[in-house]
Computed example of a mutant assay.
Amino acid sequence: MTDVNMQDTTYEAGMGDYFALLKPRVMSLVVFTALVGLFVAPVPVHPFIAFVGILCVAVGAGASGALNMWWDADIDRIMRRTAKRPIPSGRVQPEEALAIGLALSGFSVVLLALATNFLAAFLLAFTIFFYAVVYSMWLKRSTPQNIVIGGLSGALPPMIGWAIATGSISVESVLMTALIFMWTPPHFWALAIFVKSDYGNAGVPMLTETHGRRVTRNHIMGYMVALVPVSLAIAFTSIGGPIYLAVALIWNGWFLSACYKVWRRDEEVAESDGFAAERAAFKVSLAYLFLHFVALFAEAALAPLGFGGWSWL
């Protein structure tokens, strides 16, 4: 990591600045998918243990965010989108962010091991390591496939939730992880096409910067085609059912159509209408993942009433 030249103005950090280090928006997705992974697992979990487990996942996600901001402080200072983050703006010192990230990492992993099981703790530790070291320190600045490989860290929370409940890994937890992993590239790259970024100025080889929009459109379509069978396969596992299948069919059709429109677009036309198709695909991607996990939650919630899964048909 290169040295960061802080602004001359000094600030006194508040709780909001330290909370911002934890990337709360990213944390919310992590918590939601981990909670669903825990809830749909076949083994009941005491509410207090479930609360502690999800809390550890949230803290671990926040630790990853703090370590990422510590490492990326030099490029965050260059990019307009990130220049106002706590470290480049001078409100939080890099040493503070590093200490917070390491402390929260150790706390979350140890507590999760004591409260649940060692597999869940190992998966959480691996997730933190993968995001902070493999993605932030290595992949992000070395390959345009950074968001693809690095997406594994954001895809693992439902597997952690499942492990909290069962102490094991299953086909179901692997498929939930694969769903997020395959969803990440079309979701992120649809955004990258229409958002003018300054990754190039910061030396970050994002696909849109290194290969251009045409290649990015091809990648979006390729990953979308690969995402469809993963999504549909979940419907025929123990956590799936007709509710999930209906949601998956509708939203795969919608997202696939949106990505196809992005793929076939001419650059001049796209620029002339303000990247309308790309913006639409990004919005669909947000609802796509959320509703898939809501549908899984609904299947599990209705199971005690005899309406979840395929058994009631």
Rank of each mutant, 00 (worst) to 15 (best):
M69V: 00
D266F: 01
D72Q: 07
F19C: 02
R214C: 01
A303D: 07
E95M: 06
L139N: 11
S231K: 00
K283F: 00
L313R: 09
S285H: 03
H211I: 00
P24T: 00
A246P: 13
T216A: 10
P47T: 11
P157C: 03
E271H: 14
R80E: 13
S28I: 02
Y260V: 14
L104N: 12
A58L: 03
R217T: 04
F282G: 14
A50I: 08
P242C: 12
R85D: 00
R217A: 10
V174Q: 05
R213D: 15
L22H: 02
P304N: 14
T10G: 01
P44D: 11
C259G: 13
F126L: 15
L35A: 15
K23P: 01
P205N: 15
V26L: 12
R81A: 09
A61P: 01
R213G: 11
L305A: 15
V284P: 08
G309T: 14
I169H: 09
A73P: 01
V215G: 04
V4L: 15
T10D: 02
S231P: 00
V133E: 06
I239M: 11
K283M: 02
G167A: 13
G101A: 08
L156D: 10
G161S: 03
V215E: 14
F118L: 13
M69D: 03
A83I: 04
D74F: 05
A303V: 04
I239Q: 08
S108H: 05
G212W: 14
L123G: 14
S272N: 08
Y288R: 03
W162R: 13
F181C: 05
A301I: 05
G241H: 11
I220F: 06
G60H: 08
C56W: 12
W70I: 04
K140A: 04
D74P: 00
P24F: 00
L313W: 15
A246H: 10
N252L: 06
S108W: 07
G65I: 04
A190Y: 08
P47Y: 06
T177S: 10
H219A: 14
I239N: 09
A97G: 03
V284C: 09
G37S: 06
V134W: 05
V45N: 09
F188N: 09
G240R: 09
N146C: 01
A13T: 11
E209Y: 05
G16H: 00
A258K: 10
T2R: 12
S142D: 04
V31N: 00
F275S: 14
T33C: 07
V230Y: 10
T177Q: 03
P144L: 04
M69K: 02
C56K: 11
P158I: 07
G167H: 10
D198Y: 11
A163H: 09
T166R: 14
V40P: 12
A276C: 05
R265Y: 06
K140R: 03
R80C: 02
G306C: 07
T166A: 13
D17N: 04
R25D: 02
W183K: 03
W251K: 01
S28A: 13
Y18Q: 03
L21T: 01
F126E: 15
N5Y: 11
E267S: 15
A97W: 04
M206G: 11
T166C: 10
L152A: 14
A63L: 05
I164M: 15
F39K: 07
V133T: 10
V171K: 09
S108A: 14
M6Y: 01
A83T: 05
V59T: 11
A235N: 08
W162L: 12
W138E: 07
D198F: 06
A258P: 08
A165G: 11
S64Q: 07
